[in-house]
Design a binder for these strands. Structure first.
Length: 349
DNA sequence: AAAGGGCTCAACCGCACATTG
DNA sequence: TCAATGTGCGGTTGAGCCCTT
């Protein structure tokens, strides 16, 4: 047996609101408020409408300070960035855009922004199975990439998660919720090292099981170039999309990317999240290739002191390029790696 | 000018969660 | 503790508008 309907469907009016109904609702709420009970409101206000319908009409159209009409470029960027971070949590996104309603933003995304994004990045049109509701998807495998896949490209798409809240005292990897953004946190224990390197993909509603080489994330369990010769305390970036969490990071040194084979590459080419030119809020330029974006909702990005923390292995970091068939991470030196790590929001200890 | 296909967006639906008794 | 009720949210729908042929 399903739950009782919120109102008598037969006796309520549906469809577009008339100006008279709008006026009645507005007048009533301005005089008496909602009374904390939307269900009872229409009767009190003399409206033949469902309470939910009244609420929706008020919130999306009648309440003061609602803005309709064109979205600014800045709003576009915020929406795109937040969507990349938190997925279709329209109410959260709307909270960052005063005067905009979740419904407006949702419609705007579905009808305009998503299409624009897909036009800009055609390869995003095919959804990966692990991002079932995301418009983002991995680029196609580049068969021409050299075996170490250290190629270059003039275009680069990345995505920068906001904030991290790493709990370095814990061996577990809780997923924090900061400003509604899931953030994976840290570990500090020896692990199957290979699994700790790199690019990890996991569902945003999971926590990382660092003893699980790849079930929750895609690491390089057979990596022969493991660099983790010390207990690692790395961690990690986290970013979420609605269904998936993309993680970048390395345990002790991101140079462990070097020399991965095509096969590795193929396994790990999952990072397309951000059209740099269109979505960058706070640009950082990494070499001449990389820009990262650090959208802060209520929080500024943390600065990383990458070089200081990975110095033992720092020299290995000559090349960390992750060519994702045109989407390139290029770390030519430690300094760039710093940016790289900033960009990917990795933490190193 | 008419047809029809695509697009927009207000509104609805159903579910999950919160609150209340 | 649990069921009933209210609220909020995201996904979906469809009427009306716009554009192309």
């Amino acid at each position: 047996m399903g739950r009782a309907p919120c109102c008598d469907k037969a006796s309520v009016k549906k469809g577009p609101w008339s100006p008279e109904e709008d006026a009645k609702l507005k007048e009533f709420i301005e005089k008496f408020g909602t009374g904390g009970n939307w269900i009872a409101l229409p009767q009190k206000a003399g409206l033949k409408r469902c309470g939910k319908s009244c609420r929706l009409r008020w919130l999306n159209y009648l309440r003061p300070n609602i803005r309709h009409g064109e979205f600014s470029d800045e709003e576009d960027r915020i929406i795109c960035s937040l969507y990349a971070n938190i997925g279709s949590r329209w109410s959260v996104i709307a909270a960052q855009l005063p005067g905009r309603t979740d419904n407006d933003i949702k419609n705007y995304w579905n009808t305009k922004l998503k299409k624009r994004l897909l036009t800009m990045v055609p390869s995003l049109q095919e959804k990966p199975t692990f991002f079932p509701s995301s418009p983002f998807q991995p680029p196609p495998y580049d068969h021409h990439a050299p075996d170490n896949f250290l190629t270059t490209s003039s275009s680069f798409y990345t995505y920068t998660p906001n904030f991290m809240n790493v709990d370095s005292t814990s061996n577990s990897l809780p997923v924090h919720d900061i400003n509604h953004i899931n953030v994976a946190a840290d570990i500090s224990s020896p692990h199957p090292p290979s699994a700790n390197n790199l690019i990890s993909l996991m569902r945003s509603d999971t926590t990382i099981d660092v003893n699980d080489n790849c079930n929750n994330y895609l690491g390089f369990p057979d990596d022969p170039h493991t660099m983790c010769n010390s207990p690692m305390k790395a961690y990690y970036a986290a970013s979420t999309m609605k269904e998936g969490m993309l993680m970048f990071g390395s345990t002790a040194c991101s140079s462990s990317h070097v020399n991965y084979t095509k096969d590795h590459h193929q396994k790990n080419q999952y990072q397309i999240k951000q059209e740099v030119d269109q979505m960058t809020l706070h640009d950082q330029v990494l070499g001449d290739q990389i820009q990262t974006q650090s959208l802060m909702v209520n929080q500024k990005p943390k600065e990383f002191m990458f070089a200081n923390h990975v110095s033992p292995l720092h020299n290995d970091l000559e090349e960390v390029k992750h060519n994702l068939n045109g989407y390139l991470f290029h770390d030519g030196d430690g300094n760039k790696a710093t940016h790289y790590q900033k960009g990917m929001c990795s933490y190193f200890y």
